[in-house]
Design a protein around this nucleic acid. Structure first.
Lengths: 333, 333
DNA sequence: TTGTAGGCGTTATCAA
DNA sequence: TTGATAACGCCTACAA
């Protein structure tokens, strides 16, 4: 431990500590001796002791719904890299889309003494944000950005993004829509997307009929089943399907091939996320692209600035960019 | 802090501590009083103090190459869930396929006092494993399993898996092969795969000609470019392409469509990982499936057992299952 | 079952 | 620039 190093180097423990925390307050000569001693003793500072004495844990936390979704994984990746460059360890919690689990994870992280936190979305129990504020832990809501949110948001505007998608389709002459989307429960991002679709349609005097509204798991299978159901139903078929993400849209595309539905001739399809395969599919998928790694990087940067007392944490909007490709075209009707 | 709770509850600090660490050594009456006090004071134990006093950090670590690859993300996910259920926080480090970064991350985790560690693969500096042993931190090498490895391995046999793929193709009559694989540098898993292919071919008096050996990034783009190069070259074309994973294989499939190469009539293609889309592609991709979430879960379980002193850490082999689909068929020649 | 008291490994304050 | 020493918040013999 530290005192052994001090003894070997023939200095006090305070000096050893300084060598690692305020190196330029130590003479080069002494510093060298200490570093040598540390090396031969194979010593490095113990984080717990350090945290206790300095009341700084050098830990930050992030809560995401799941690592199974690439968009969250890459956000974690971006934060991790940015924090690591500043000697801060990122600890990860998965809520599995369950607010109660998110709250538990945040509490556990508070107990660990996290210095900053990021949580995906704002659909969380009030206690979660209360706890963060009570312990004066700077935090940011990521992935989603909403004007008027009480939180620091770093992400994109889910509502606006789906307004853009819907307007694109309406501009192509579509008037009859189906929607295939992930579970909306406890998910403000998905809710905002649906709201964006509805509001836009309404503005044009349109609406999604209930039998064309599908909510289910984020898989190709869900997309496939939904399209099959739509096509088998006796009611009028939609000319466009708006999907909650690329997985679902790819399933729709795949099933359309099976059912010999011409795309975009007979049916237009849109996704979200712009997975690598989206542009490689035939027809290539019209979708929206968001740089989630960048969201992570930005979030870490904001939190670090806030820890440095540089500036009050304020939100930042990231753009979602529409990638027009072959899966959308003029309405046949 | 703890002493405030003790005061409010009218007990000693030791008793408060017991309530959280050995609850059944405290009478129900006293326990209730303490819990009430803690609640009103909104107190929970500070992890740094706890770690320092008990010399148990309740932290475990995992080093993966990157979160961008689903297989590693889901392994993290599996470990996380299993550890969380036991009150252990998982901290994550990404090496970006760089041994030096992996070593740094391990050192940082040792400083944090990790109680157990997992690292993907065994292609790491000797210092890394030395450090782990010196600090008596139980660890496991994951994702890869190799007979005779000096480490506890929990994963599948990359070599054997590619022997199986190669044998499958040879059984179909193929004699001329191309290989498209991820960077082999510092990557024992990929090296084992290539070795498996080579050894199997050699056993049949065959080999991959150098101009049919491609090494590049794990993307569809790399697969596409590779196939195009192969097809444009003046030399004899292979009848089968073995890819290092599904991304690359999907790219090959996609480019084959572009070049109007009949699959599997003219060319057989294999992948690895069995992404959801692999079975949905037309033609569906022949590939191998590994349950990486399970690898993570098993690893956590082994490490927990080892911490409990239950049994010496010994390896465990997970199966990679060949998924025979439409992208492989009899050789035309 | 409960309390006392010393120590876990470092940092921070103050003096020298 | 360096050193002595008291925290930091909790756990754990040991004693009662």
């Amino acid at each position: 431990m530290l005192s052994d190093v001090a003894k070997l180097a023939g200095v006090s423990t305070a000096t050893v500590s300084r060598v690692y925390n305020e190196p330029d307050k130590v003479s080069a000569n002494v510093r060298e001796r200490v570093e040598h001693a540390a090396l031969t003793l194979n010593w490095f500072p113990n984080a717990a002791g350090r945290a206790l004495a300095s009341t700084r844990s050098h830990i930050a936390g992030i809560i995401i719904p799941t690592l199974d979704d690439q968009v969250f994984a890459s956000q974690v990746s971006g934060m991790q890299a940015a924090f690591a460059a500043r000697g801060i360890t990122l600890v990860l919690g998965c809520s599995n889309y369950d607010p109660a689990q998110a709250l538990m994870q945040v509490r556990a992280m508070l107990a660990r003494g996290v210095e900053a936190m990021a949580v995906v979305g704002e659909a969380h129990p009030a206690e979660l944000f209360d706890a963060l504020r009570r312990y004066r832990v700077p935090y940011a809501v990521t992935y989603a950005y909403r004007e008027g949110s009480p939180h620091t948001c770093i992400g994109f505007d889910n509502h606006a993004a789906y307004v853009e998608i819907t307007e694109h389709l309406i501009g192509l002459g579509h008037r009859s829509f189906a929607v295939c989307i992930q579970p909306t429960r406890d998910n403000d991002r998905v809710q905002a997307r649906v709201a964006g679709i509805r509001a836009t349609l309404e503005r044009h005097g349109l609406a999604v009929r209930p039998e064309h509204m599908f909510e289910g798991e984020s898989t190709m299978g869900f997309g496939r089943r939904s399209l099959r159901t739509i096509w088998q139903a006796p009611c009028e078929r939609p000319t466009a399907i708006i999907c909650g993400n690329d997985h679902i849209a790819l399933g729709v595309l795949r099933e359309a091939e099976e059912l010999a539905i011409a795309i975009p001739g007979e049916l237009s399809v849109t996704g979200f996320d712009d997975l690598e395969i989206a542009k490689e599919m035939r027809p290539a998928l019209t979708t929206m692209r968001v740089d989630t790694y960048e969201i992570g990087r930005l979030t870490a940067q904001h939190l670090l600035d806030s820890l440095d007392g540089k500036r009050p944490l304020n939100g930042q909007k990231v753009n979602a960019l529409l990638q027009l490709r072959q899966s959308t075209g003029p309405s046949a009707r």
